[in-house]
Computed example of a mutant assay.
Amino acid sequence: MTVSSAPSRATLPARMRAAVMTAPGRFEVREAPRPAPGQGQVLVAVDGSGICGSNLPVFEGRPWFAYPLAPGAPGHEGWGRVVAAGPGAEGAFTAGARVAFLSGAAFAEYEAVDAAAALAVPAALGDLPFPGEPVACGVNVFRRARIVRGDVVAVVGIGFIGAVVARLAAAAGARVLAVGRRPFALDLAGALGAEPVPWGERGAVVEEIRRRTGGALCDVAVEAVGLQAPLDLASDLVRESGRLVVAGFHQDGLRTVDLCAWNWKGLDVVNGHERRREVMMDAMRGAAEAVADGTLDLARLVTHAFPLEAIGEAFAALRDRPDGFLKGVVRP
């Protein structure tokens, strides 16, 4: 059944354009059948989808991935407008409602998504691109970290998630020390209310943080990269009885930790990731509110947009991080 006042099924195209990852580092834009919304689902005409650092391994290639991927995969940061509804979802959204959603095939013109995994975008955002899923991830990390006014917080890695967490922490009244390698990222951190800390040799960074905190180190350290060295550095920056928050997505192998130091310091170690849909949707609502009230400026954080035909260039930019790059989105 269609959404009330939305285009009828007869007016929707039977086929759509979708990006297909055919091999490591290779995309083709192909025609594919337009999905139909199933039970409890809505059909979204996709306005765009962010590209996520967690997708670099499948772009670069690993032995455990099989190609080609499904049309639209691995896009999971989508937003768009509801154009039809399946059984049980007819009243979930008004016709043409602008939504952000949780999904897995948003590098395409259309995607069918569970209505419970879609959020109406506040009117205050206008037509601003809103990749709700990654902003929600940043909100969720911030919430799990339990950062409060007066905390001293180190954020190790100023990519998109690190930048969101740094901004939310600064807005909450924390003192934020943002550790980054790129001059652009350090300048951005300063504009977000954090104190930039150039990332060099591990011991030198620890001593610099120790100097800036009068020897106390940090109440909370957020590792936001997903590699061994940043995890080691973040572990060093937490004071005794502080919190180490692992926000980076560690997917390229096993990690080693100095468990003796963790034990001795009495650290609380927090996994910054969330898999419960209802929790992620609540974080997405918080993300939309933070953008609507001006706490988060997505116009500053989403730095690059690419057409669907240039999706390979988008992933290459994510991999290479050219100057000025923080977050890219792909627009069909």
Rank of each mutant, 00 (worst) to 15 (best):
R15G: 06
G242A: 14
A178F: 03
D187V: 00
A120W: 01
A145D: 04
R319G: 11
L231E: 02
A172H: 07
V291S: 11
P13Y: 09
G200Q: 09
G40W: 08
P68N: 15
V152D: 10
D320Y: 05
G294A: 14
R331W: 07
R34A: 10
E278P: 00
F315W: 12
R146K: 08
Q41V: 07
F27Q: 04
L43E: 11
P131W: 03
P307K: 07
G180T: 03
A290T: 04
A115I: 05
E77T: 07
T94H: 10
F325G: 02
A221P: 03
L192R: 00
A292Q: 09
F160L: 03
I161M: 00
M21G: 08
R210P: 00
V176E: 04
L177D: 09
R210T: 13
G48H: 02
R212K: 10
G96C: 02
V152W: 08
A204K: 11
L298K: 12
L301M: 11
A288E: 02
A108R: 01
Q228E: 13
P74Y: 12
S8A: 14
A171C: 13
Q41G: 06
V197M: 04
S4K: 08
E240H: 12
G126D: 13
M16I: 05
H76A: 02
D323C: 03
R211D: 11
M284I: 13
E90R: 03
G162L: 04
I51M: 03
P87E: 15
N140E: 15
A166C: 06
A118N: 01
Q251P: 00
L192P: 00
A299G: 15
A10T: 08
L119Q: 06
A216R: 12
V220W: 06
G50A: 15
K265H: 13
C52Q: 05
A229S: 10
E195I: 14
S235D: 10
T303N: 05
A189L: 02
G193W: 11
G286I: 08
L231V: 13
L267A: 12
V82Y: 04
G272F: 02
A73R: 04
R255V: 15
Q41D: 15
V222T: 05
L231C: 06
C218I: 08
V141D: 04
R98A: 14
L168W: 03
F249M: 02
G272N: 04
R15N: 11
M16C: 04
F101S: 02
R276F: 10
G173C: 07
S54R: 00
G50T: 10
V113N: 03
N271E: 05
V148T: 15
A6W: 01
G61L: 13
F142I: 04
G248H: 07
G132R: 07
